[in-house]
């Protein structure tokens, strides 16, 4: 028996919007720790890891570890039927091949349930090693989204370079080149507007902008994004989900031939 009651149901709606275009089908794993997912895109270039900790749910019952295979597009269709202020409860019985999403309006005058078929998914679980990153950049998520969108109108790849001068995003395409430099800036009114750069040593890596733009669909989940870079490691683009956990996107670099 599984029953997870999320008062801030809009978080789940936003999570689905953030990952449904990257991943088609995925197993949601439910354990005492929380509700989690790890999945790669179809070309195995990017990986998404989601964790919503059990403490973040108003009610969290998970009698035994359960893995539920879902088509994310179909799940998104169902969650779109929930209002932004609705409380969402996820329910599943042991051995059932369906999951139920229950939506309650804030004043309890409307209750809806949507039952979705589960699917069997053979997914590979990858071990993500703890790593010391050469550079970690925290910046406003909207600023990062803007840069990725702007650069993708010029080129297909972005070179992200961190030096003591700041973080530079560069691209080149048929019509020309573009460089955006963000310097560390902690003299802002609100902490989420700051750009903070922790650099152990300079690093420069190249990534496909198509994936970066896909990751920025998580922007509504968090005011800030944290980007971790190391030579010869996938970049980590992390959006923290307030009080609950995180969504992390890993993207393998491109290497010049």
């Amino acid at each position: 028996m599984l029953e997870l009651r999320l008062v801030q149901g809009s978080l789940l709606k936003k999570v689905l919007e953030a990952i449904k275009d990257l991943v088609n089908d995925a197993n949601f794993d439910c354990s005492a720790t929380g509700f989690s997912l790890q999945a790669m895109d179809s070309s195995h270039v990017a990986l998404v890891a989601l964790l919503l900790r059990s403490e973040g749910f108003e009610h969290y019952r998970c009698d035994r570890n359960l893995s539920m295979g879902m088509n994310l597009n179909n799940m998104s269709k169902m969650l779109k039927c929930a209002g932004n202020d609705d409380i969402i409860t996820i329910k599943a019985d042991d051995g059932s091949d369906t999951v139920t999403f229950m939506f309650e309006s804030p004043n309890q005058d409307k209750i809806a349930d949507f039952e979705m078929k589960l699917m069997d998914i053979d997914s590979e679980h990858l071990g993500i090693p703890e790593a010391e990153y050469q550079a970690i950049v925290r910046m406003p998520s909207s600023e990062f989204a803007r840069i990725c969108k702007d650069l993708s109108s010029i080129g297909d790849t972005v070179v992200i370079s961190v030096t003591k001068e700041g973080v530079k995003f560069s691209t080149r395409g048929d019509i020309g080149t573009a460089n955006v430099v963000c310097r560390q800036n902690t003299t802002v009114d609100k902490p989420e507007e700051a750009t903070v750069i922790e650099m152990q040593e300079p690093v420069s890596l190249t990534f496909a902008l198509r994936y970066m733009n896909s990751f920025t669909k998580a922007t509504p989940l968090s005011g800030t994004v944290t980007i971790s870079l190391s030579s010869d490691l996938p970049i980590v683009v992390e959006y923290k989900i307030a009080e609950m956990g995180y969504i992390r996107f890993y993207l393998a670099p491109k290497i010049e031939d």
């Binding site: 790669m40 990986l47 590979e124 990858l126 071990g127 010869d232 996938p234 890993y250 393998a252 031939d257």
Partner: peptide
């Protein structure tokens, strides 16, 4: 030209 690596080059299956 550049080569796109895959995630499985860096992270191994459990």
């Amino acid at each position: 030209d550049s080569k796109q690596y895959t995630i499985t080059k860096f992270f191994s299956k459990i």
